[in-house]
Design a protein around this nucleic acid. Structure first.
Length: 449
RNA sequence: GACCCUAUCGUCCAGUGGUUAGGACAACGGCCUUUCAAGCCGUGAACACGGGUUCGAAUCCCGUUAGGGUCGCCA
């Protein structure tokens, strides 16, 4: 009988949640949910110089946005707290005493505490990478130098990552360490500490790294490196989470879009591949469009409201019914939520922007003004109850037949006159939603320009 | 430089000894349509290289090359 799974995400608060970190958190969360285990959040804030409250908040916000809830950690508590390394000094001191008693550490000339490396062959059975052997008894260069003993405590008494990471994983009962492959080379050192402490190491699973589009390590500066960017650009959290699942893992049946509940049931560590993956912004963008097109109107509305409010659209003055009609008309077209304000502003205000290119191309075209006037007069004859898509379409077709020109010659100017744009929802639906008075006024205003 | 990991279309993911090497994004072409950053259909596009093992290798082994990672009083 194996122990219940306990995994953790242990970020350092840098003021930024990297997509690689988010993907690591996601895989840990998936494994915990898949096995019915616990997902723990631990803040590795040993480097006092870089810590701020805001930086920690960024981590909480990013994880919550992605839907990754933690069972133990800041805000929710748990039996193994505190969950900030900066508050666990006594724990580390206790373990340092154990190492001291075992003769495994010493103080160097600068008063830093170092761990006496056993310099043996370390064999790891990684759940993703397989068996990995590292011979620590060998010199690290042709000169015969050995790797220096690692420091575990600075002269000022603060602790170093390798030591506290291991101590906390022991104290918190972590059964599986799922982390980025950049830690694979650190793992032998960690195993040495476990061994010196007489503790069986947890299972390790080193997941491949996320590369930028040109194949290099995704750094802070790269497009799409920060989770915040997806929030700002109007991605739906479910699509980003879905996309991240597909980087290094797959359901094996060629599906791309699949609900998180299904990923949870399918997720296995040994199905994670070993290859680094480049982040494909285009595909993430496409997937987001798929999610938006297929989500319910209620969900779409919930995601759009804050974006529209932030953009200053006076949506408060309109009925929920009107708002829903507007949103429904653009839902199938939009790929990013941040585009919603530009796509819908003219539904809520008469003071909307005219796209210069659209104006030049269609409104200033020869005869456009005359046709707009003609169109307005024609539409005016429509009975109020016929102001709906089907009747509007018939009206456009009848008018163009009468005038002996293609319907498009009325359609395009009408669209620009009514919305200021050359792209948007279905024209007849758009006009129907806007209503007779606004449409007629806009057609005549554009004709008079 | 040493050590470790990796190697299928431009990108992501399938394919674990016998396949016309499959899907998705992107690209390109067409269709539909009032627009497209919508939808539909289609095309091009890959097993890094060299040796083995085998009747037979994308799949197994070795080497080469390339990419990535680690070698801190960062995490």
């Amino acid at each position: 009988m194996s122990l219940p799974v306990r995994v953790r995400f242990a970020p350092s608060p840098t003021g930024f949640l990297h997509v690689g970190g988010a993907r690591t958190a996601l895989f840990n969360w998936l494994y915990a949910r898949h096995t019915g285990g616990k997902f723990i959040l631990r803040i590795e804030d040993t480097d006092k110089a870089r810590n701020t409250v805001e930086a920690v908040q960024v981590i909480y916000d990013g994880l919550k946005w992605l839907g990754l809830d933690w069972d133990e950690g800041p805000g929710v508590g748990g039996d193994c707290g505190p969950y900030f390394q900066s508050e666990r000094d006594a724990v580390y001191q206790k373990y340092l005493d154990k190492l001291l008693a075992a003769g495994a550490v010493y103080e160097d000339e600068k008063k830093a505490v170092r761990f006496k490396g056993p310099r043996k062959l370390i064999v790891m059975e990684d759940l993703v990478c397989g068996r990995v052997e590292v011979d620590r008894s060998k010199p690290i260069n042709p000169l015969g130098d050995m790797e220096p003993d690692m420091t575990i405590r600075r002269p000022d008494g603060s602790w170093i990552f390798h030591f506290v990471n291991v101590v906390d994983d022991i104290e918190m009962g972590i059964t599986h360490v799922i982390r980025g492959e950049d830690h694979l080379s650190n793992t032998p050192k960690h195993i040495e500490i476990y061994q010196a402490l007489g503790v069986t190491p947890p299972q390790f699973a080193h997941i491949p790294l996320i590369l930028n589009r040109s194949g290099g390590k995704m750094s802070k500066r790269d497009q799409g490196a920060s989770v915040q960017q997806y929030i700002d650009e109007g991605y739906a959290p479910e699509s980003v989470a879905n996309y991240l699942c597909l980087l290094g893992w797959s359901p094996k049946d060629n599906r791309e879009k699949l609900p998180m509940e299904e990923v949870v049931s399918l997720f296995e560590l040994d199905k994670i591949n070993r290859r680094n993956a480049a982040f494909d912004t285009d595909k993430c963008f496409w997937l987001n469009g798929q999610y938006i097109h297929e989500m319910t109107l209620e969900r779409f509305r919930a995601l759009c409201m804050p974006v529209m409010e932030r953009a200053g659209l006076p949506i408060g003055g309109f009925s929920n019914d009107y708002l829903d009609h507007v949103l429904a008309s653009v839902k199938e077209k939009i790929k990013l939520l941040k585009d919603v304000p530009a796509w819908t502003a003219y539904f809520f205000t008469d003071d909307f922007a005219f796209d210069e290119e659209a104006v030049n191309k269609t409104l200033r075209a020869g005869g456009a003004a005359a046709r707009l006037t003609q169109l307005a007069s024609h539409l005016e004859t429509l009975p109020a109850e016929s102001w709906e898509p089907v009747a509007l379409e018939s009206a456009f077709k009848a008018l163009s037949a009468e005038a002996g020109v293609k319907t498009a010659l009325f359609i395009h100017p009408a669209r620009v006159a009514a919305s200021g744009r050359s792209v948007g929802p279905s024209l007849y639906h758009m006009l129907a939603i806007l209503g007779r008075d606004k449409v007629l006024a806009r057609l005549r205003a554009a004709a008079a320009k």
